[in-house]
């Protein structure tokens, strides 16, 4: 009898290629057309970088630059805030033994993952309206902070699970205070997880459209809301150039987090 290769199923490779094709085709088409000379988005008029120049110097560039800056500020602040909170929570969940409300805390941390985004958006709008708070990027920041926590928590908790407390115990046996044990032993060990957590939270904040669109204050746009407003009036080549730039940024980020994740695995 011929030995079956049990890892192989006919057609799976083809489906994988199809999957990759489906994932990339729209993005690639947009990337290609972003280099289109012609103002008409559907006809090819030769290779040109003019739309990239337009993104940085064109008439709409101040609007998009401000929006990009807002997005960045919000994502950095919400990402780092959520990471701090999630780190503290992860230490509690993995180093404080059993305590009252542990299950409830666990459910709470994951709550933002379980509530559909549109519900979070509506609830936040009602809340901020009810308390009469409509300050600039503040509303966006607070809403993002809350729903970024579980995304920051996931990689940190995953990392914590594989860190035995014997190093800290050893340090404390050598008269390290709990604070020193945390700062000198646990924190460095947690670092790869903390970094992935921050990246994840950062990207999630950067990605958000729906909640931002519901709670944003007067005169405040983030990159997604600015792009949404623009594409409603037509997918213009400058939007494609922005999209392609964002694709590039994403590739850099993923590669970065992958490299860091790999170095994290090595140090362990």
């Amino acid at each position: 009898m011929k030995q079956l290769d049990l890892r192989r199923f006919p057609g799976f490779f083809a489906i994988t290629l199809a999957c990759v094709f489906v994932l990339y085709a729209p993005l690639m088409v947009v990337a290609v057309y972003s280099f289109n000379e012609s103002t008409s988005i559907t006809r090819w008029g030769g290779f040109s970088l003019s739309w990239y120049a337009d993104v940085f110097t064109g008439p709409e560039s101040p609007k998009f630059q401000r929006a990009a800056l807002n997005s960045l500020i919000i994502a950095v602040l919400a990402g780092s805030g959520a990471t701090l909170i999630a780190t503290s929570a992860a230490v509690a969940m993995h180093r404080a033994g059993r305590f009252k409300a542990k299950t409830a805390s666990f459910a709470l941390i994951n709550l933002p993952l379980m509530v559909p985004e549109v519900v979070t958006a509506v609830a936040s709008l009602i809340f901020f309206t009810a308390i009469g708070f409509s300050g600039g990027i503040g509303t966006i920041l607070l809403a993002h902070l809350a729903f970024c926590i579980p995304f920051a928590y996931l990689p940190i908790a995953a990392r914590m699970q594989s860190i035995s407390d014997s190093y800290e115990q050893a340090a404390m046996d050598l008269y390290a205070t709990p604070k020193e044990a945390f700062r000198l032993i646990l924190l460095p060990l947690m670092m790869p997880g903390i970094f992935s957590g921050f990246l994840l939270a950062f990207i999630i904040s950067l990605d958000d459209f729906l909640i931002t669109n519901f709670v944003k204050g007067a005169g405040v746009e983030t990159l997604p809301t600015a792009i949404f407003g623009a594409v409603k009036q037509g997918i213009k080549p400058n939007i494609m150039a922005i999209s392609t730039l964002m694709l590039g940024v994403s590739v850099v980020f993923v590669t970065l987090s992958w490299l860091i994740g790999r170095s994290g695995q090595k140090t362990q």
Binding site: A25, P26, L27, V29, V30, Y33, I41, I203, L206, D207, F209, L223, P224, I227, F228, V231, I235, I239, M240, S243, M246, L247, S250, V251, F253, V254
Partner: peptide, 15 residues
């Protein structure tokens, strides 16, 4: 997945 959801949806629409 790391590319903005909005961008991906717009790309699909364009395609």
């Amino acid at each position: 997945y790391w590319v903005n959801l909005l961008i991906r949806t717009v790309s699909m629409k364009f395609l």
